[in-house]
């Protein structure tokens, strides 16, 4: 695992030095920042290049590929989530939390990152634009399905509601579709037809649009 951690550290640092991914990062810059020899850097950059995560330009340095950039951002997001969890919930001081988060970031699953996000809802005060709001698109990640997609007989817990129109959210909330409550799918009249769902002990029919605004953590 150590090699994986190491790999991911390189990716994050390239991301950081390149100002979020566009510029070319010199081998010397990396070796300075990470306190390792330029030779080790060159070797690792070559490996990463073979994996298609960076483009290696001889004598100049390295840039992140699209895939590499995505991976780096994902890891950095986990770093900030972990850091925030450690400071806000565990009451750890910032320096220790940072060190700890450097280890957490490599081992945290996407799912637990999302769950932590929902628990703390952090706003990260950091230098990078992307991580000011690491939980921004937590909703779109795995684990949450729109209620409309639930199979007949399926059940889950309401995670959040998402819609531009506040009136629609108000209406759903007032009918009992509140985050944290259990819902189950009784039946769907047809593919695009209304859904009959149970929330608590009430049976309610919702059209497909309204039911797709309710995201649930599915239990199955």
């Amino acid at each position: 695992m150590a090699t994986t951690d190491n790999r991911e550290d390189y990716l994050i640092n390239i991301l950081r030095l390149s100002g979020d991914g566009d510029g070319v990062v010199r081998t010397s810059e990396l070796s300075d920042l990470m306190g390792v020899s330029p030779a080790s850097v060159s070797e690792m950059v070559k490996t990463l290049s073979e994996e298609g995560l960076v483009d290696y330009v001889r004598y100049k340095g390295a840039t992140l590929t699209e895939r590499g950039r995505e991976l780096a951002m994902k890891i950095r997001r986990k770093h900030h989530i972990a850091e925030r969890f450690l400071t806000d919930v565990m009451d750890m001081d910032m320096e220790d939390a940072h060190q700890e988060a450097c280890r957490f970031e490599h081992h945290m699953s996407d799912e637990s990152a999302d769950k932590l996000c929902r628990m703390i809802g952090p706003k990260i005060d950091d230098d990078c634009a992307y991580c000011t709001d690491p939980c921004h698109d937590a909703g779109a990640m795995i684990g949450d399905t729109p209620l409309s997609e639930l199979e007949k007989g399926g059940c889950g817990r309401i995670s959040y509601l998402k819609c531009e129109d506040a009136e629609k959210i108000k209406k759903l909330i007032s009918m009992g579709f509140v985050p944290g409550r259990d819902v189950s799918m009784v039946s769907a009249v047809s593919g695009n037809g209304p859904r009959i769902v149970k929330v608590g002990d009430s049976a309610i029919a919702l059209d497909k649009e309204l039911s797709s605004l309710i995201y649930i953590e599915s239990a199955n």
Binding site: G121, I169, G176, G180
Partner: peptide, 18 residues
């Protein structure tokens, strides 16, 4: 809303149901 990622009226409703 910025710090919780959830609008306050949704959260109030959530607490009320709880």
């Amino acid at each position: 809303e910025e710090s919780h990622g959830e609008s306050i009226d949704v959260h109030i409703a959530r607490d009320r149901f709880g």
